[in-house]
Design a protein around this nucleic acid. Structure first.
Length: 438
RNA sequence: GCCCUGGUAGUAUAGCCCGGUCUAGUAUAGGCGGCUGUCGCCCGCCCGACCCGGGUUCAAAUCCCGGCCAGGGCGCCA
């Protein structure tokens, strides 16, 4: 094994272009393939930006270099110092003739899966060997897009005057009811992992007015679906002195902004994934809950008023809106959490909305209740004990502004952008009912 | 948690319905050898597998039962 010493990268693979002809460069990366023709060998070196061919003719390279290439296996880590030559015969019209090669580490064979992706592996096998799996260009592309999405979201919120906050992930009580919480040992007490920043972000609107958080949250649901994980990244916002209409518009603008940025800045990745991003016209379609029920009735999926919409019904709705973002608004009050504000003129309906893409729920939000008395009433109606919300409720005595907000599931948004059908493909190291490692 | 489907070399598949010809086929990976323009290089040789336990049977990869694991669907999912 060779030592790195003072070798430093001069170029990424993608930066080796024909116009560097004659220059000496240093590249680092992983051996993607070796094509050994005897007295002539070709190595495809892969780094995070792409691939470059290293051409090794016995006649012109030193014996040391030639012998080193002889023992090279796929996924070994190498450094190459050599001369760039443009050539019609090479991939991308350019190749490197090595003067020196360092083998920085060996990969042990046979590998757990084929990192070129030619022989497919089951998702379970892939996740067990996730790092190897991530070396595949498609997977690198997914997480480069993930990076761009996060970057664009922060840029958007910065432009909109939002302040990024962090709320606690270890909490004292099952704050919201509903979703199951993971218990944790907190010194000599029991605590839980947060399922949402909801209550904290609401409180923070009374200080910072416009806040957002991008953070992991945890739900101990028995879910075995292609769109749930036990740990997930939520993009949460909350804003003072507005109602649901304002934050719907904000959400719509964010989606379009991110789509435009990804389309512009991730062309290479989208090409690898064979995805085309279409910028949807605004405003997105807004269905009322009642309208959705009528459509579903006609499609043969009767839903009784007040119930949440079951998955098969959502799929039917998704059939009508295959590649479309749309909202469902005017939900029954009883189908939404206690903190959602009922309509003043029609209290059985509330100011909540869901953002859908096809049949997948990407985000949900609404106007929140800022009146303490009403909030206590709603808690009771949902069979929750106001006592256990005392630390939250007391904030409502200290000047709580009217406010609204939403939460967007990052993994689900990434599924939509990258065309993956299982959210686990859009999470580096997913956690679910059955998987805790790697 | 329920329902359906599946589990064969490192990976991915064929065989299973209709038990014997399976000493389990193929591809790829891996090992060895050959090859100076490959680009899914090619050619030759080799290595390597029936999830676990029980049952039926002269005989089980194949049929039955239980378990474990996986995939999908549903439920749950502020």
């Amino acid at each position: 094994m060779d030592k790195l010493e003072d070798w430093r990268r001069t170029h990424f693979s993608s930066e080796i272009t024909p116009n560097l002809d004659g220059q000496t460069v240093t590249v680092f990366g992983w051996v993607q393939t070796v094509r050994d023709l005897g007295k002539m060998k070709f190595i495809v070196l892969s780094d995070r930006e792409g691939e470059i061919q290293i051409t090794v003719p016995a006649k012109t390279v030193s014996q040391t270099v030639f012998e080193k290439v002889n023992g090279l296996k796929k996924q070994s880590v190498i450094g190459v110092r050599g001369v760039v030559k443009k050539s019609d015969k090479a991939q991308r019209g350019v190749e490197i003739f090595p003067e020196e090669i360092k083998v920085l580490n060996y990969a042990k064979h046979p590998l757990a899966l084929d990192p070129t992706g030619r022989i497919p592996a089951d998702l379970d096998v892939r996740l067990d060997a996730r790092i190897l799996d991530l070396r595949r260009p498609e997977n690198r592309a997914i997480f480069r897009i993930n990076h761009q999405v996060l970057s664009s979201i922060r840029k958007f919120f910065e432009m909109q005057g939002f302040i990024e906050v962090q709320t606690p992930k270890i909490i004292a009580t099952a704050t919201e009811g509903g979703a199951a919480l993971f218990p944790v040992v907190y010194f000599d007490r029991e605590a839980f992992l947060a399922q949402s920043p909801q209550l904290y972000k609401e409180q923070l609107t009374s200080v910072f007015e416009k806040v957002y958080e991008i953070a992991p949250f945890f739900r101990a649901e028995e879910s075995r679906t292609t769109r749930h994980t036990a740990e997930f990244i939520s993009v949460d916002i909350e804003q003072a002195f507005v109602d649901w209409r304002d934050v719907v518009e904000l959400l719509e603008n964010l989606i379009v902004f991110v789509l435009k940025e990804v389309k512009e800045k991730c062309q290479k990745e989208l090409e690898i994934l064979k995805r085309e991003i279409k910028i949807p016209p605004q405003p997105f379609r807004r269905y009322t809950y009642d309208e959705v029920l009528k459509v579903l009735e006609k499609k043969g999926f009767p839903v009784s008023w007040g119930e949440d919409i079951p998955t098969p019904a959502l799929r039917a709705l998704g059939e009508i809106h295959r590649e479309e973002y749309y909202f469902i608004v005017d939900w029954p009050t009883k189908s939404k959490p206690f903190y959602i504000k009922p309509r003043d003129d029609k209290p059985e309906v509330c100011e909540a909305f869901d953002l859908m893409y096809s049949w997948i729920e990407l985000a949900s939000g609404g106007t929140r209740i800022h009146d303490k008395e009403l909030l206590v009433k709603r808690l009771r109606e949902q069979d929750l004990n106001p006592e256990s919300f005392s630390s939250h409720l007391k904030v409502f005595d200290w000047g709580m502004p009217p406010h609204a907000g939403w939460a967007l599931g990052l993994g689900r948004f990434l599924m939509v952008l990258t065309g993956r059908e299982n959210i686990r493909e859009c999470v580096l190291f997913p956690r679910d009912r059955d998987r805790l490692e790697p």
